[in-house]
Each structure stands twice: as structure tokens, then as C-alpha cells.
């Protein structure tokens, strides 16, 4: 981990203005912002850890816990809301037995809601890793999970 962190930092100069891009790069390679990484970033940029924490907590993109292998982001935009996103979120919560913002015990799935994915014309929608699923119904929720389960079983066997 520390090696990849060093690799990331070596692409920056250590200016304060690079703080957000640094955190974004760390998160995209490690999956979250571990405490050790923040300490290293603080040394590198000369920005106090508390301030880095302040910046990181301000933006919804950053997280301090790892996400599941399949990270589900359900859109909570206006169009999705009008077309039943709250019921979809509840449906996924029931299916995975976790709440919004949590990760399943086996670290397979994590769930969060996002402001708007910009697929409003095909609402309600969700993004699983980088793939967008659209026109969701509660029936689709079940189908998507059984499909993902089958896919990961295929890979393992």
C-alpha cells in the first residue's frame, strides 16, 4: 500500500491546490482514504491532518471505509425521486440487509445514494461500479443481484 501511495504522491508537486486531486487518486487506487494515507499526504503537502480531514469530509466523494467489490450508487435525482427511487433504495437495503452508506459483511456489496447521475430520462437509475442500470423496478433489483451473483460464481469456478 505504501508503495502505491508513494507512486501516487510522486506524480504531484505537493502544492496545497493539489490536495483534492491527490485524495481522488488515492481513493481511486485504494478504494478509500486510510488514516495512514492522510498522515502521509499531510507531510507531503504541509497541510495539517485536521484540515485534510475537513476537506475530505466536505465532499461526498471521499470515504474513510472501504467499499464493497460492487459499489452500488442509487440516483436520488428529482426525476428518479418522482419515479420511485426511494422504493428502489429500500428494496436494495432489504435485499442486502444493509442500510444506505453501509457495506455487506462479506465486503461484496456496498450501497450509497448520489445526488444525480444525469440519466434522468431513464429514471430511476443506479450505477454499479461504472455501469448504469436504468428504468429500474423492484423486480429488476432481484434480477440484477442474481445476475451479479451468477457472474461472480462463474468467475470463481
Amino acid at each position: 500500500m505504501s508503495k502505491s501511495l508513494n507512486e501516487i504522491l510522486s506524480t504531484f508537486n505537493g502544492n496545497k491546490s493539489e490536495l483534492i486531486p491527490i485524495l481522488q487518486d488515492i481513493q481511486s487506487s485504494i478504494g478509500y482514504l486510510p488514516e495512514d494515507a492522510i498522515i502521509e499526504v499531510s507531510k507531503f503537502t504541509q497541510v495539517p491532518e485536521s484540515e485534510i480531514y475537513g476537506v475530505a469530509t466536505f465532499y461526498t466523494q471521499f470515504r474513510f471505509l472501504p467499499v464493497g467489490k460492487k459499489h452500488i450508487m442509487v440516483c436520488k435525482g428529482t426525476a428518479c425521486h418522482v419515479k420511485g427511487a426511494p422504493q428502489i433504495i429500500e428494496g436494495i437495503e432489504r435485499h442486502l440487509d444493509i442500510k444506505e452508506g453501509e457495506v455487506t459483511f462479506d465486503l461484496e456489496y456496498s450501497l450509497e445514494s448520489v445526488g444525480c447521475l444525469g440519466c434522468c430520462a431513464l429514471a430511476p437509475c443506479a450505477m454499479i461500479n461504472e455501469e448504469v442500470e436504468s428504468n429500474l423496478t423492484l423486480k429488476d433489483v432481484k434480477k440484477i443481484f442474481s445476475r451479479m451473483k451468477n457472474n461472480s460464481n462463474d468467475k470463481e469456478s
Binding site: 496545497k16 491546490s17 490536495l19 483534492i20 465532499y59 461526498t60 466523494q61
Partner: peptide, 19 residues
């Protein structure tokens, strides 16, 4: 990095400055 308020001009500037 995901903050609606950053659409506001002065907030957007603060964000580019790393704040």
C-alpha cells in the same frame, strides 16, 4: 468531488484552490 454548492462561483474557486 461531489458538492452541489460548488456550482456557486466562489465555492467552485475555493474547491480548485484545494479547500
Amino acid at each position: 468531488a461531489g458538492a452541489f454548492v460548488c456550482g456557486e462561483e466562489t465555492a467552485l474557486i475555493a474547491s480548485i484552490e484545494g479547500k
